[in-house]
Computed example of a mutant assay.
Amino acid sequence: MKAAPEAQRRLLDLQAVDTALAQLAHRRKSLPEFAEIDTVSRELSALEDERVRAQVAVDDIDRDISRFEKDIEQVRQRKDRDQKRLDAGGAVREIEGLQHELATLNRRQSELEDAELELMEQRETAEATLNEVRGRLTSAVERRAAAERRRDEALADIVKEEEFKSASRGPLAADLPADLVTLYDKIRTDSGLGAALFRSGRCGGCRIELYGADLNRVKTAPADDVVRCEECRRIMVRTAESGL
C-alpha cells in the first residue's frame, strides 16, 4: 500500500487519539470506586443480616417481657379479689385459705417481677447491640454513597474527555486516505495498536529491534510505502525521528 509520508505521520496523531480513548475506556472499567462499592455492598449485606438477628433478639425479649407483664397483672387482679374477700370476712377456714393463697400469690408476683427485671436487663444489652449494628450499617451506607458520588464524578470526567477526543478523531480520520484508515483500523481492532513510530531500528509496536535484511528493507523502502512489522504486523511509521 502507498500513502504520502505526511499522511503516515498523521496516522500517529490518530493513533495517539485512539490510545487515549482506549486508556479512558480502561480507566472507566477499572475505577477503584467500583471495587470499593462492591466491597461495601457485601459488608452491607452481612450487616443487614446481623441487624435482623439483633432485632429478632430484641423482639423475642419484648415478647417475653409482655408475657411476664400479663402474668403479673393476672396475679395482681387475683390478689385484689382475694383481699376484698378477706376484708369482707367469713368462715375461719375460708379466711385461712385466702391468707395462704395471698402468700402464694405474693411469692409468685415477686418471682415474676424478678424474672421480668432480668429480662429488662437483657433487653438493654440486646438493644445496645442492635444500636451498635445500626450505627455500623449507617456508616457503611454513607461510605457506599460517598464512593458512588466519587464514581459518578469520575465517570462524568471520563465522558467529557471521551467526547473531546472523539470529536477530534473524526476530522483527523476523514482527512487521511480511506484505504490507509481502513487498514489501520483493522490492525488496531486485532491488536489494540494500529500504527507506531519506527525509531532507532526498533518497531514501536512490539518493541523488537530489526537487524540485517529486515532493517535494510525498512531503510530502502520508498517514502510512500506503508511498511509493516514482520512480527506484529503493525504499521511502522517512518519520520525524521526514525534515524534512517
Rank of each mutant, 00 (worst) to 15 (best):
K2P: 07
K2V: 10
K2C: 08
A3M: 09
A3Q: 06
A4R: 14
A4G: 11
A4I: 11
A4K: 14
P5R: 11
P5Q: 10
P5A: 13
E6H: 13
E6Y: 13
Q8R: 08
Q8N: 11
R9L: 12
R10M: 14
R10Q: 15
R10V: 08
L11I: 09
D13L: 15
A16Y: 02
V17I: 15
V17F: 05
T19E: 12
T19S: 05
T19L: 09
A20H: 07
A20Y: 04
L21Y: 05
A22Y: 05
Q23K: 13
L24V: 11
A25L: 07
A25I: 05
A25E: 06
A25N: 06
A25R: 09
H26A: 12
R27E: 14
R27M: 13
R27T: 11
R27K: 11
R28W: 08
K29W: 09
S30E: 13
S30I: 08
L31W: 00
L31H: 04
L31M: 00
P32C: 01
P32V: 00
P32G: 00
E33Q: 04
E33S: 02
F34N: 12
F34R: 14
A35Q: 03
A35L: 00
A35I: 02
E36I: 00
E36K: 06
I37F: 03
D38G: 07
D38Q: 15
D38L: 07
T39K: 14
T39E: 13
V40S: 09
S41F: 08
S41P: 11
E43D: 13
E43T: 14
E43Y: 08
L44E: 06
A46N: 07
A46K: 08
A46L: 12
L47G: 10
E48H: 12
E48P: 02
D49L: 13
E50A: 15
E50F: 12
E50R: 15
R51L: 11
R51Q: 09
R51N: 10
V52R: 04
V52N: 02
R53C: 01
A54E: 03
A54I: 05
A54P: 02
Q55V: 02
V56E: 05
V56S: 03
V56M: 01
A57T: 01
A57V: 03
V58W: 01
D59K: 00
D59E: 00
